[in-house]
Design a protein around this nucleic acid. Structure first.
Length: 511
RNA sequence: GACUUAGUAGCUCAGCUGGUAGAGCAACAGACUCUUAAUCUGUGGGUCGUGGGUUCGAGCCCCACCUGGGUCACCA
């Protein structure tokens, strides 16, 4: 059983056969000696250089045929350039039908072609390439969506998000600006690497498959190792492994960590996402705040050349330093209530009065966290460090040097969302074990996201970890901010999707 | 997971109080040697997401399912 090809697909397959009949390989093996790019030619051209030979390659994206001469647009990796193709220039003794048959009949929009020619300026003033030789480089069998542009405005853009994400390759080819988002994504990574490497910190790799999914509170993906016959989990964080490396004697280590969490999906959550975590010995969270704001400012400058970013209708300034507010002050500021001396019962009634939903399993720390989350978090649009979180919420974080109910923790809030999270790391092995045991109690109370106990990690602390500060930052969210995107799907090449109902595309055949 | 909204030609979209489908671009045939959303003439292309139901008759009404988007809940 075969599924019928569309009319346009049938025509393209016929063109493919005809090319072969004419002795033209539609998928040639030899390299094509490209020596220029569309936008480079346009940027660097000077009129006295008219006639300079170039060799370019790319997709044929539009055609304006006027009898014996045509203008086409070639799209290469950097952009588009217009090419003038005339019959008498590209026909040759070997291929006298190059223009009338190959170019006009057998080529389609989307096909890869190579052009040898020279640069010139048209009568309308557009810098173009005058073709002297046309080479078929790869024939396309499916029609691309046709998006036309005039003065930067797209007409009939390919914009169904389902199709754009499922077929990102098409999105990247036809929609202007999509590639730029991903180019910026890589610039963000490069800028951050440069920042860390310049200070002597080392990029490392730690296990993705873990037998205890530690370092964060989240539901993991589960898998199974056949040879060992044990369950394994895709990591939800890499924190505990990086700290083991600090125990081992590295002064600063960092990792861009693809993490996996088996939770809901929406426009700020994808089941696999990237966090960058860095740990530096002999530092504390105050040092880390400065380190973080300088990093974010540098990244923003490197990527955008400015510290002001437009996200939706808001302008966000990443100019360091960022504002710092303790969590208790934040709650005071946004509710008018001072919770600093309250016990669990008093907090519970505050939540009730403010209509913040709570349940019986929540302890004092969780209640404060809920209050902050409901009443404050969304208010911090400009980058702001929220500091000194309750101890129950932070089982891997060192107790605050002046208040044992709090921890030396900060989160960086931007655009009403958490962007980064950092601690003065807990390095007291006895305290760490007790905190893990508290988590176990929470788990028995019904909290299915409480942390697992990792005894090997505790053992490593018993061997001694220097005072250390660590910081994690959500790379996808950072890229969203740096590119002004409002959905995580827009900054991931291939966001997670439910499999589309298959109509056995593979069975498609001609006839 | 809940609510809501959508799925019609390769793409972007119309489609009346139910009477078995239209446009632009793309495609095909033709004209045109400086066009640029090229233009002009002509032509073809659709199991209207899938499966049921109501009806003389369903793209439209009803039910179920599939796959998106949005809002909420949980989370980074």
């Amino acid at each position: 059983m075969s599924i019928e090809l569309s009319e346009q697909e049938v025509f393209r397959r016929q063109s493919l056969s005809k090319l072969r009949e004419m002795g033209i390989d539609p998928y040639p093996a030899a390299l094509y000696p490209v020596d220029n790019y569309s936008t480079t030619i346009k940027a660097e051209f000077k009129d006295e250089e008219s006639g300079k030979p170039v060799c370019i390659a790319g997709r044929l994206m539009s055609r304006r045929i006027m009898g014996k001469a045509s203008f086409i647009e070639i799209q290469d990796t950097k952009g588009r350039i217009q090419v003038y193709v005339s019959r008498d220039d590209i026909n040759s003794e070997a291929q006298p039908e190059m223009y009338n048959v190959v170019f006009k009949k057998l080529l389609d929009i989307g096909d890869f072609i190579g052009i040898r020619g020279y640069i010139f300026r048209t009568q309308m003033g557009e810098i173009s390439v005058h073709a002297q030789e046309l080479t078929v480089l790869s024939k396309t069998l499916r029609p691309l969506p046709i998006v036309k542009y005039k003065d930067g405005v797209a007409y009939d853009a390919f914009e169904d998000p389902e199709q754009r994400y499922r077929q990102r390759y098409v999105d990247l080819v036809v929609n202007e600006g999509i590639k730029d988002i991903f180019i910026k994504r890589t610039k963000v990574y490069n800028s951050m690497r440069e920042y860390f490497n310049n200070q002597g910190y080392m990029e490392v790799e730690t296990p993705v498959l873990q037998s205890i999914p530690g370092g964060a509170a989240a539901r993991p993906f589960t898998t199974h190792h056949n040879a060992l016959d044990i369950p394994l989990y895709l990591r939800i964080a890499n924190e505990l492994y990086l700290k083991r490396l600090i125990v081992g004697g590295f002064e600063g280590v960092y990792e861009f960590s693809k993490n996996f969490r088996n939770e809901g999906m929406d426009r700020t959550h994808n089941p696999e996402f990237t966090a960058m975590e860095i740990y530096v010995a002999y530092k504390d969270y105050n040092w880390m705040m400065e380190f973080t704001e300088k990093m974010v400012e540098k990244v923003c400058l490197d990527v955008n050349g400015t510290t002001d970013i437009q996200v939706g209708d808001k302008t966000i300034s990443f100019k360091a330093p960022f504002k710092r507010v303790t969590m208790i002050d934040a709650i005071h500021e946004h509710t008018g209530i001072d919770i600093s001396t309250m016990n669990e019962e008093e907090l519970r009634s505050v939540c009730k009065n403010l209509h913040v939903e709570v349940d019986a399993s929540m302890g004092k720390g969780k209640l404060i966290d809920e209050l902050f989350g409901e009443k404050c978090e969304g208010k911090y649009i400009q980058p702001t460090f929220i500091t000194d979180y309750p101890i129950e919420m932070s089982p891997l974080c060192k107790r605050h040097r002046t208040n044992p109910e709090l921890t030396e923790r900060f989160e960086l809030m931007v655009n009403g969302k958490e962007l980064a999270n950092a601690y003065s790391e807990l390095n007291d092995p006895i305290d760490q074990l007790e905190r893990f045991q508290e988590q176990l109690k929470l788990s028995e109370k019904g909290d299915d996201e409480a942390m697992h106990i990792d005894m090997d990690f505790v053992r490593s602390l018993e061997y001694g970890m220097p005072p250390t500060s660590g910081m994690g930052i959500g790379m996808d969210r950072l890229v969203m901010l740096m590119t002004g995107q409002q959905a995580i799907q827009e900054v991931l090449f291939f966001p997670q999707m439910k499999p589309a109902p298959s109509k056995s595309e593979v069975e498609k055949t001609e006839n």
